[in-house]
Write a protein that binds this DNA or RNA. Structure first.
Lengths: 345, 345
DNA sequence: ACGGGTTGTGCAAACGGTTTACCAACTGAA
DNA sequence: TTCAGTTGGTAAACCGTTTGCACAACCCGT
C-alpha cells in the first residue's frame, strides 16, 4: 500500500541499501545518485516507516511520561499544561515526540511503565512526581533506563532531576516583604512531609534570621494546597492578639483563600495584611488585588527536563545530576504600598 | 540484550510461532503448552516488542495529537489540561497511548502530521482546533486517515467531531438570568468570526425572543477572550443611559474583567449587575463573588473524541459524525439574589 | 482397517528498514 | 605493469513478530 524504500529503489534503478544510505547521508554515496534518489522519493511521496526503523535501530525518538492522576489541587492543571508544553517543545526541537499514557491506580501505572520500557516504546521517561521509595524509580534504575524526575528524590542523589531552589525562593519572598517595611511576618505552609514545605519554611526562617526579626512559632501554620487551608489560616492569624502584618504563603490557591477571607471580614489587602504566594498561576493577575507570587518557571522545568533526558539518551554525561531552574519574583498589588499607608501617604 | 520471543521459545522447547500464538490466545494452542510458555515468559521477564509488533500488524495502538501553540487566552491552559486528561484516560481504557508532537509554526505542524501519518506512527489523530479550510484536515481526508476534531468544521459535514451545543448553552444561561427577574440583559461576545461567538449570540437571541424581551443592539458588544475586553465592555455598559441589569459573557476570563471593573467603580455583583460566563474555569469558585458559569464538559469533550476515534480506527461506523457533549449550568453568587435586593430583602 | 475431520505445532515468508561484508572499477604511485 | 588504496554500490543477514500453509497425530464412525 504505502510506498517503501524498495519502491524507490526499483524506480531509481538502485538497491534498497543505497536508498537507505541516501536517507542517512552516508558519505560514500555519490552526489549524483543521492539527488536522483531524493527526486524519486519526492515524486513517489516516500516517507520512511518509523516502526521498521525503530525495530532495527532500537531507537524510537520518543519520550514517555505518565499522566498524573487528577489531584485535588487546582494548581495541578496549570502546572501540567505548562510543564508538558515545555517538555514537548524542547523534545520537538530535538526530533523527539512525547508519548503519554495513563493509569487509574498504582499498579496500572507500574504496568504502563513496564509496557513502555520493556516494550521498547520510548527511549526515556520523564516523571512528573515521585513518592518516597518510589517503585517506579527503583524499576527504572534496575533496568538502567534513562529518566529524569521533575522535583527531587531524597533516597538517591544520582537520580537526574530538575527542580527549583525553594529555600532561596522563600528567602527572596520573605526579604521582599521585609523590604516593604514589614517586621511581623507569618508563614502559611503546606503538608510538612513535602520537601517543598520544608524548603520554603527554611528559606523564610533564614530571611527572618538575617534581619534579626522575631520568629514566633504561632505565626507558622500548616495546611493543604487548598483554598480552605488559606481561609482557616487567615481566621487564625486575625484572631491573635499580636497579628502579623504580612504572610508568605506556600501556594497561590491557598493565598486566594486568605484573600477571600480577609475581604469577607472587611479587611483589605495589602493594607491590613500583605501577602505573597508561590507558583504564579494565571489567576494571580486576575484577582483583586492582583496577587504577588514567585514564578517557579514551570515551562522551564519541563523544558530542562526534556533537554536533560535527551542528552542522557544520547549518551552525554551530565556534569551534575541536579538542575536548578531559577525563580522570579512577580510583585503585584498584594504586597506593595504597606509603608505608604502606614506613613499616611 | 532484551529477552525476545525466541529466547522464550528455546527455553520452552517450542517454536517462536507457538509462543506468539500463546501471546494472542490462539484457539489451537493446548492448555498445557500455553501454561508452560506463560510460566517461562514470567520467569524470563519477557515483554513483547511493540515496534516489531506494529511493523507486521500495521497497528500502533497510539493516537496522535499536536500540541496547540501557546495562545494568548488564559483559558487555554485549563482547556488543554482537562482535554488531554479526557483523551488519555479514555485511550488508556482501550489500550491506546497518546503521542504528542509540537510544531513552532504552520509548516512545522504540517510536517509533524505528515511524519505521524506517513511514518505510520499513530493509528489516528485528534485535532484540538481547526482553521477554515484547514490544510491539515484536507491532508487527512485525502489519505483517508482516521481523525476526530474537537470543535466543528463547517466546510465538511462528514468530518467526525465532538462539540457543545453552544446555542442551547447560551439559551440556558440567558434563561437563567430571566428566571432571576432580569428583563434588561446584555451580551458580551468574542470575535464575531468564531462559530462559538455566533452560536452563543444566537442562543441569547432565542431566549430573549421566547420571553418577548427587548433586544437592543447596543447591549451587544464584541471583544477578545481577554480580561481587557470585559473591562471595556463594562465601561461601555455602565455609561449607557439605559443599562442592562445582567450580562451573558462569552468567557469567564472576560467576566473577570467585568467584575474587576465593577468593583473598581464601586458597583457590586450581583446587585448592580448580575453576570454569568462560559467555560467554568477553576477560578470561578475562587473569585469574590464566585462566578456563575456554563460548564462545557472539557474533560468529556476529550473523552468522547478519544472514544470516537478509537471506534473509527477499529472500523465501527458512527451513526452520525457529530457528537454533542452536554453543558451544565453552574450557578454561583454572581447571578443570584437580584430579586431579593430589588424587593428589599 | 480406513478415510475424514479435528488438534496442536513447526516452517518459512513476510513487514520495512539498517548494516555488515564484499566486490568491481577506478585511481595513482612504485 | 602491478599492487594498494579509494569510491560507489550490491547482496544478504538481521531486527522481533505475525501468519498462511503444511503436516503429524489423534479421534471417530463405518
Amino acid at each position: 500500500m504505502a510506498v517503501t524504500i524498495k519502491d524507490v529503489a526499483k524506480k531509481a534503478g538502485v538497491s534498497p541499501s543505497t536508498v537507505s544510505r541516501v536517507l542517512s547521508n552516508h558519505p560514500r554515496i555519490s552526489k549524483e545518485t543521492s539527488i536522483k534518489v531524493k527526486n524519486i522519493m519526492n515524486e513517489l511521496g516516500y516517507h520512511s516507516n518509523m516502526m521498521a526503523r525503530s525495530l532495527v535501530s532500537n531507537k524510537t525518538y520518543t519520550l514517555g511520561m505518565i499522566l498524573p492522576r487528577p489531584a485535588e489541587e487546582l494548581f495541578q492543571n496549570h502546572f501540567f499544561a505548562e510543564n508538558i508544553r515545555g517538555i514537548t517543545t524542547q523534545a520537538a526541537r530535538n526530533g523527539y515526540d512525547v508519548l503519554m499514557t495513563a493509569g487509574a491506580n498504582d499498579s496500572d501505572e507500574m504496568e504502563a511503565i513496564t509496557r513502555l520500557v520493556l516494550g521498547r516504546r520510548v527511549d526515556g521517561i520523564i516523571l512528573l512526581q515521585s513518592r518516597k521509595h518510589d517503585p517506579i524509580i527503583t524499576f527504572l534504575r534496575e533496568h538502567d533506563f534513562p529518566f529524569v524526575l521533575i522535583g527531587r528524590y531524597e533516597e538517591d542523589p544520582n537520580v537526574l532531576c530538575v527542580d527549583n531552589d525553594n529555600i532561596q525562593a522563600a528567602f527572596d519572598a520573605t526579604s521582599h516583604l521585609i523590604s516593604q517595611g514589614h517586621t511581623r511576618i507569618g508563614f502559611v505552609s503546606g503538608p510538612p512531609s513535602l520537601s517543598v514545605s520544608q524548603d520554603r519554611l527554611e528559606g523564610y526562617r533564614q530571611a527572618l534570621a538575617e534581619h534579626q526579626l522575631q520568629m514566633k512559632s504561632e505565626w507558622i501554620v500548616e495546611g493543604e494546597f487548598l483554598q480552605e487551608s488559606g481561609y482557616r489560616a487567615m481566621s487564625f492569624f486575625m484572631s491573635l492578639p499580636e497579628r502579623p502584618t504580612a504572610l508568605v504563603i506556600i501556594d497561590d490557591v491557598v493565598s486566594f483563600g486568605v484573600m477571600r477571607g480577609l475581604t469577607e471580614l472587611g479587611y483589605s489587602v495589602p493594607e491590613d495584611l500583605s501577602i505573597i504566594g508561590f507558583n504564579n498561576i494565571s489567576l494571580t493577575e486576575l484577582s483583586t488585588p492582583p496577587l504577588s507570587s514567585i514564578d517557579i518557571g514551570i515551562y522551564q522545568l519541563g523544558y530542562m527536563a526534556s533537554q536533560m533526558l535527551i542528552k542522557r539518551i544520547q549518551g552525554e554525561t551530565q556534569p551534575q545530576p541536579r538542575t536548578i531552574v531559577p525563580h522570579r519574583l512577580m510583585i503585584r498589588e498584594s504586597s506593595l504600598h504597606y509603608k505608604a499607608k502606614r506613613s499616611g501617604v
